[in-house]
Simulated assay, not measured.
Amino acid sequence: MLPIQCKEIMKKFLIGIDDYISEKIFDEKGRIGEEECVSDLLRSLNGKGKGPRGLEITAKDFEEYLQEIISEIGLQGKVKFCMETEDFSKTFEGAVNQADYALALKFVDTSSDVTMAEHNSWEIYYLFQTKVARIPGEESERDNLKWSDKASFVETSGQVERINMLKEIIGDSAIYYHYFCPYGAIGLNEKSHVYRKLKNDLSEPLFNECERLGMWITEKWHKKVSGIFANNDFVSSWVYFILMHYFDSANSKNISFTHPLEFKKSPDGQKQIEERNKILKRDKDTLEKIIAHLGTNGTEKRKITAESFQKRGYLRLIEVQVDFPFYEYELALSPSSPAPDEPKAPGGGGSSSPSP
């Protein structure tokens, strides 16, 4: 985990990415598609490039800011924030992972105590099927239309069924729907369940941050924006989905980072996690099992085989790795200092309460 002092700059970095993409969706009124949105996301998270023009904090800037904070804390050693991206093919999406991109979150404790460093280090992978909100109304009237929670998402024939079948192998919490909504999506209906709950649960500054966000994560498919915020099913903003993995929620007041990852603690859950990791590594046996299970092996004239996905980087992957000497940081805290983050792999309670 990272020191709590790093939380605000990480949140600002991630919110800046959300602002950049969701404002574009808001202004274009549904004229941009999934490919452009995912490409913008990958460019924003790629630490090797300059990032899209208009992004407040680039990934490279963010790493530099983190290092400054660590130096101010007085802790020796460097913090590293590494982001890598990899392309994919539509064939791989349709036949295997049912996702537009994969997200690998990793934490490496670089402390000199090897045993404790290994104990505190973790990694977890997720798959995301992306959908972009479409403003309701006729194309000819688009410029005069206004966003509402009736904005819809395009459903690809058979996709929801294939995703549910894939979950039978890799687990319910392995693949999510990532909804690209317009800026301020949750405020499109102030009577929705999630809006009212967050308004009640969060402090005003935190709620104001949440209200502007446009990228949201759910486990279930929704045809309209209204469905995302309608009930007590799991929903999280994309920003906090990532943030919650690197900071202990006990250090945050009036905010819930609860998330349905409890299956990770069980043997079956660990097996599911291993299966999804094998997808990213394009393990031949795993790919064959999934292709057979989904019935996506193509036609007699154009067979789809596991071997065809092993020769190239067919997966669009966002890898976020944070290197930090957490154990040494924990030792450096004096007894009078606030308790550090509890070292643990990401996960926790199975509550379906919404996260901002």
Rank of each mutant, 00 (worst) to 15 (best):
residue 41 L to G: 03
residue 293 H to K: 15
residue 216 W to E: 11
residue 47 G to C: 05
residue 164 N to A: 14
residue 336 S to D: 15
residue 286 T to V: 14
residue 223 K to T: 14
residue 162 R to S: 11
residue 10 M to N: 09
residue 318 I to G: 05
residue 94 G to P: 02
residue 143 D to H: 06
residue 11 K to F: 05
residue 292 A to M: 07
residue 116 M to N: 14
residue 147 W to N: 09
residue 156 T to M: 07
residue 126 Y to A: 02
residue 193 H to R: 09
residue 229 F to H: 03
residue 188 L to C: 01
residue 128 F to A: 06
residue 226 S to Q: 11
residue 195 Y to H: 15
residue 238 W to H: 15
residue 220 K to Q: 10
residue 102 A to W: 06
residue 65 Y to W: 13
residue 141 E to W: 00
residue 233 D to C: 06
residue 214 G to T: 03
residue 107 F to R: 07
residue 61 D to A: 02
residue 89 S to H: 02
residue 18 D to C: 13
residue 289 K to L: 10
residue 202 L to V: 05
residue 3 P to H: 03
residue 239 V to S: 09
residue 32 I to H: 00
residue 137 G to R: 01
residue 255 I to D: 15
residue 39 S to F: 01
residue 163 I to F: 02
residue 21 I to H: 02
residue 140 S to N: 14
residue 308 S to K: 13
residue 121 S to L: 03
residue 93 E to M: 01
residue 177 Y to S: 12
residue 165 M to N: 12
residue 86 E to R: 12
residue 268 D to N: 13
residue 184 G to P: 01
residue 243 L to A: 14
residue 262 E to Y: 09
residue 295 G to W: 00
residue 211 E to K: 13
residue 131 K to V: 01
residue 236 S to M: 09
residue 107 F to D: 06
residue 271 K to F: 01
residue 269 G to Y: 08
residue 205 P to R: 05
residue 345 A to W: 06
residue 204 E to Q: 14
residue 147 W to E: 09
residue 63 E to I: 05
residue 280 L to D: 05
residue 240 Y to S: 14
residue 233 D to Y: 03
residue 59 A to M: 07
residue 9 I to C: 11
residue 340 P to C: 11
residue 290 I to C: 10
residue 330 E to L: 10
residue 83 M to G: 14
residue 80 K to Y: 10
residue 223 K to Y: 02
residue 328 E to H: 10
residue 81 F to E: 04
residue 153 F to Y: 10
residue 31 R to M: 07
residue 20 Y to T: 04
residue 295 G to D: 04
residue 15 I to Q: 11
residue 157 S to Y: 04
residue 68 E to H: 10
residue 213 L to E: 07
residue 41 L to W: 01
residue 12 K to N: 15
residue 338 P to I: 06
residue 43 R to H: 07
residue 290 I to W: 04
residue 202 L to C: 10
residue 31 R to C: 00
residue 18 D to K: 04
residue 73 I to T: 04
residue 228 I to M: 06
residue 343 P to A: 08
residue 182 P to E: 02
residue 62 F to V: 02
residue 157 S to D: 11
residue 343 P to L: 08
residue 235 V to M: 06
residue 128 F to Q: 00
residue 351 S to G: 15
residue 8 E to P: 00
residue 231 N to A: 08
residue 344 K to A: 13
residue 275 E to V: 05
residue 168 E to M: 12
residue 204 E to F: 03
residue 131 K to F: 01
residue 259 H to V: 13
residue 288 E to A: 14
residue 148 S to I: 06
residue 78 K to V: 07
residue 232 N to Q: 14
residue 231 N to V: 01
residue 65 Y to A: 13
residue 56 E to L: 14
residue 52 P to C: 06
residue 143 D to F: 00
residue 232 N to G: 12
residue 237 S to Q: 08
residue 257 F to P: 00
residue 306 A to Q: 10
residue 200 N to Y: 05
residue 316 R to N: 14
residue 141 E to H: 00
residue 321 Q to T: 12
residue 119 H to Q: 11
residue 215 M to D: 03
residue 28 E to D: 15
residue 204 E to V: 12
residue 146 K to Y: 09
residue 353 S to W: 07
residue 348 G to M: 09
residue 35 E to D: 11
residue 313 G to A: 12
residue 2 L to K: 06
residue 337 S to N: 12
residue 277 N to Y: 04
residue 119 H to T: 07
residue 303 K to C: 01
residue 172 D to K: 15
residue 138 E to Y: 01
residue 205 P to C: 04
residue 15 I to M: 15
residue 202 L to K: 08
residue 170 I to W: 01
residue 170 I to M: 03
